[in-house]
Computed example of a mutant assay.
Amino acid sequence: MALHDQWRKSSYSGGGEGNACVEIANRDTHIAIRDSKAPTRATLTIPTAAFAPFINALKTAGDHSG
């Protein structure tokens, strides 16, 4: 695991005023996800192969939420 991750704003963050800003960092075997407004708080890590299915599941859940 890298000590100094290269964080970048996720393309899945959405637009607007940046209220839904999510950052991601590619690691050797995982994708790390954090809230850009609270970067020192908890980080979610997902195996690289599971990242796309995870995002698709979030999109599907969002389609049914409202």
Rank of each mutant, 00 (worst) to 15 (best):
A2E: 11
L3W: 00
H4S: 04
H4M: 03
H4P: 01
H4R: 07
D5E: 14
W7N: 08
K9F: 06
S10M: 12
S10V: 01
S11C: 06
Y12S: 07
Y12K: 08
Y12H: 13
S13R: 11
S13M: 12
S13K: 03
G14N: 08
G14C: 07
G15Y: 09
G15W: 11
G16V: 00
G16H: 00
E17F: 05
G18A: 10
G18H: 07
G18T: 08
G18I: 08
N19G: 07
N19P: 00
C21S: 12
C21D: 07
C21F: 10
V22M: 12
V22L: 11
V22N: 02
V22Y: 04
E23M: 03
E23S: 02
E23H: 10
I24L: 15
A25W: 05
A25I: 01
N26E: 06
N26W: 03
N26V: 04
R27A: 07
R27V: 05
R27L: 13
R27D: 04
D28K: 14
D28R: 14
D28T: 14
T29R: 15
H30P: 05
I31Y: 05
I31L: 05
I31H: 02
I31R: 02
I31N: 01
A32H: 10
A32R: 02
A32D: 03
A32E: 02
A32K: 01
I33C: 09
R34K: 05
R34M: 02
S36Q: 04
S36N: 07
S36T: 06
S36H: 04
K37L: 06
A38P: 01
A38Q: 05
A38H: 09
T40D: 13
R41Q: 14
R41A: 13
R41N: 15
R41T: 15
T43M: 10
T43D: 06
T43C: 15
L44T: 10
T45M: 14
T45Q: 13
I46T: 09
I46W: 01
I46K: 02
I46A: 03
P47N: 04
P47T: 10
T48P: 03
T48I: 08
T48F: 02
T48N: 12
T48H: 07
T48K: 12
A49I: 09
A49H: 08
A49M: 07
A50Y: 03
F51N: 00
F51I: 02
F51S: 04
F51D: 01
F51Q: 01
F51K: 01
F51V: 00
A52Y: 06
A52W: 06
P53M: 13
P53C: 14
F54V: 08
F54C: 06
F54P: 00
F54L: 05
I55A: 14
I55R: 15
I55G: 05
N56K: 12
A57F: 09
A57G: 13
A57W: 06
A57H: 11
L58E: 00
L58S: 02
L58R: 12
K59L: 09
K59H: 00
T60G: 04
T60Q: 10
T60P: 00
T60K: 04
T60S: 06
A61L: 15
G62S: 12
G62D: 02
G62R: 03
D63M: 05
D63G: 09
D63L: 10
H64Q: 13
S65W: 07
S65Q: 11
S65L: 09
G66S: 13
